[in-house]
Write a protein that binds this DNA or RNA. Structure first.
Lengths: 331, 331
DNA sequence: AGCCGATCTGGGAGCGCTCCCAGGTGTGGC
DNA sequence: GCCACACCTGGGAGCGCTCCCAGATCGGCT
């Protein structure tokens, strides 16, 4: 920078001000500095800058999930992409972190602690995940996507209304005259699927229907959904609707139903959760699904984090984003 | 760090050496420092460290591709994941960068130039992509995954043997007695699909078969594959085999063939490319596919980059990784 | 004319670390 | 017993930047 300043005929300080477009720089000086920087191919050293400013301009996006799940989970892919965009829009660089094994945990903590990033957006759906608790001890601003495992208060969370979404789905089925409404639930060690199952159960009870024995748990995969559907069908050949806790599992359920000769939606109506843009409308028949927008979630998370960066004492916020029902041919 | 040193009763220098486990520190001193660091909850400031060492410990993985493609491209997802792992294994942090629009280009260049990372692994499959050329001007070590657009020499590349893979596929079909072997090619503005198409053509000619009019180009998507297959079937109802340039397109082709009443492999044999672990074996029938391992590619790229970090003058290397044919029921 | 405040500039200090160098201590060989 | 050479330690310098402060310049107002 010294060189640039000399080349432009000004002092280091003035060059710095021009480069960071601070106030109190004459237009002439600013232009000379900018021209010099261009001619000399200069770009400021970020390490030096963040050493004194104590901020890096980078934000971590932490995905704490088993490895295999990330590969074919389209929702996570959307989160990465949206995270990148939303952060870029506020001039921040995304640093992706996959935290899976226990060994990753300490690495992740060390990284977040090391001053590489100014804050973190954390997705840790599993209730037993030790990461959220470990993060509490750090002085780095964190916003969680979905409920933080084992922590109820004092953290910033942006979640979707999972229970409300399930209610929408089941009410829709009840209104269509369905009486034997089963569900393929997601893993009950995560809060989102727990809430979805609860919503299904409550809504059935409200409608005077009996949920007993109409639940089958699966692992959010295609084959898991297919197997769960088989089990349900074996126990209750007369079921006339099913609420599936994710699109991917619904694809599996669809296959099973098809193989069992059930017409959809005539014999069995299907409603799922996620409304994944590439999956849900592409099925045969297109899936009715509870719509949640990853971009919207990330946007809210970034917004909260930016405020947190301004004011560390921002009082903890639990944002619950509304969901809607995208009705298609499967119901 | 000063505090840690004081607490441990040693000097700043000794503390630094202990923390970086340099040579020439007594075991006693090292332990005292480590204990002090633990007790004080100290973690070194990375900005200060990289200011003097001139390295950050971070490596960028740049994906230069249209946004929509990343979401459902399982190969890219595997690349991200493998990149994270392989880099973690050599003690480096991955910084993911999506570079799509032209506006992203300058942002990407600025970022890579800013000293945030020590090197970059770049995937830029499109021939018209301006990124590779822009990167040439930077003094940052770069290794390309797949051919770099518009650059033939002077860069480090780790690619798969696309043409050889296509040859394997077609030779397999010829050996099985197929005579009318069509192809669903990928976008011809990328080198991988170009090479695959060339391999198909050459192998047909070598076998004394006529490739004329048996090509249909598609965009690597499921629906693109389905449409291309329809077009081929319309022109050549008598085709008895098809080489599809990606698994995803093959899934589409399978649907079209099924809808047209063709039995697979009896009427039409299908061979695809990628051998995606979740997709290819899960199809009905399971797909014969040319196997390429993203992990292997990333591994080679990381290895080359690490050498490049040691020795900037490493002579440019073009590594072509071999592929194999995973034979399954579709052929 | 004189003064005051707004605008602009340059130098100094220091962010937290690593590296170099000078010096101290111990150990083995002659 | 003394030197040479390992091994270990502490202080100083400096990485490239931003921020603070003191001072300079300039216009506008009394």
């Amino acid at each position: 920078m010294e060189d640039v300043a000399a080349f432009a005929g000004v002092s280091r300080s003035t060059a710095s001000r021009a480069l960071n477009d601070d106030a109190y720089v004459s237009a002439a000086a600013r232009e000379k500095v900018l021209a010099a920087a261009r001619d000399l191919g200069y770009s400021p050293n970020q390490a030096a800058r963040s050493l004194v400013t104590r901020r890096t301009g980078a934000i971590a996006v932490v995905l704490s999930e088993p490895e295999d799940r990330l590969l074919d989970d389209p929702y996570r892919a959307a989160v990465m992409r949206a995270g990148y965009r939303e952060l870029a829009d506020v001039g921040r660089q995304m640093v992706l972190i996959f935290s899976d094994t226990r060994e990753d945990l300490s690495r992740t903590v060390r990284f977040l602690e090391g001053g590489h990033v100014d804050g973190a957006l954390v997705f840790a759906p599993h209730r037993a995940d030790p990461l959220p608790k470990a993060l509490r001890l750090l002085r780095i601003p964190v916003v969680f996507g979905g409920q933080a495992a084992g922590i109820r208060r004092g953290v910033h969370v942006v979640d979707f209304d999972n229970e409300g979404g399930a209610r929408l789905a089941v009410e829709h089925l009840v209104a269509a005259g369905r009486r034997r409404i089963a569900t393929v639930a997601g893993p009950q060690d995560q809060s989102a699927p727990i809430d979805r199952l609860a919503g299904w159960r409550k809504t059935l009870l409200n409608a005077g229907l009996d949920p007993a024995d109409l639940v089958e748990e699966a692992d959010f995969t295609l084959s898991g959904g297919a197997n769960a559907m088989s089990a349900l069908l074996a126990r209750h050949p007369d079921l006339d609707a099913v609420f599936v806790a994710s699109d991917m599992m619904a694809v599996g359920a669809l296959r099973t139903l098809d193989a069992a000769g059930r017409r959809i939606p005539e014999d069995v109506a299907v409603v799922s959760f996620d409304d994944n843009a590439t999956l849900a409308p592409a099925m045969d028949p297109p899936l009715t699904s509870v719509h949640q927008d990853p971009r919207e979630q990330i946007h809210a998370m970034v917004e909260t984090l930016m405020q947190l960066l301004q004011d560390q004492n921002l009082k903890p916020r639990q944002q619950i984003l509304p969901v809607s029902l995208a009705v298609r041919a499967s119901s």
